[in-house]
Amino acid sequence: MKLIKVEHAYKIYKNGTTAIADLSVTIDKGEFVFVIGSTGSGKSTFIKMLYREEKPTQGSVIVGGIDVAKLRNSKVYKLRRKLGVVFQDFKLLPKLNVYENVAFALENLGLPNSEIRPKVLKAIDAVGLKEKTRNLPSELSGGEQQRVAIARAIVNEPKLLICDEPTGNLDPTTSKEIMAILDKINKESETTIIMATHDKDLVNQMKKRVLVIEDGVLVSDTKKGSYKVNESDKNSKKKHS
């Protein structure tokens, strides 16, 4: 069953930059997909289009039956309730503890407290942070903060989990722990996971579907793929190091 259907999507920014060009792809329910590409390749734009932070300039992006291109700004919440988003910088509220950060999502949807509590505790348990429910984000390690962000993203049991470089700020060991959690979520609840990453080791190790985007074009789509770093990416990495 198709959860995401992208057809001939283009994204051209106002300054004339083409971030995505004629991209077509379908993703089924329950899949785990890596999106890779060098810096500025358009993978972040692709990810952003899935949760409607960006709108396609042309073509269609359908997520869970909702046409993102036709979705008005005031109706974005209808799409966002069907998915969870995890970011590299966690985006936690510093003055709320772990429980409150996770409950924050459901409170804003107007759920009663009697429903919120079990759901929040279940999500916190799923990411292995049962013992730190009352801790503030500042009292947690980077990996733990990312786990809180994952718990918040899955608390509403979304069909789709979008992860934008979730291990970008983490060390290799912690990254593996996060991947293990995401893999477990994918297998146990059949949540579709789309993850943008630069982490070669993780992609190679996980053996999942890999979409490679270069210059806004989908250049490769392989089942059980691996991270193929092209020359331009190598060069850009050298420049940054």
Partner: peptide
């Protein structure tokens, strides 16, 4: 700003925000 951004991301309606 972050608080508003997160509310949008978790699916809160504009009125609720």
């Amino acid at each position: 700003k972050t608080q508003i951004e997160i509310k949008r991301l978790v699916g809160a309606s504009n009125v609720a925000i």
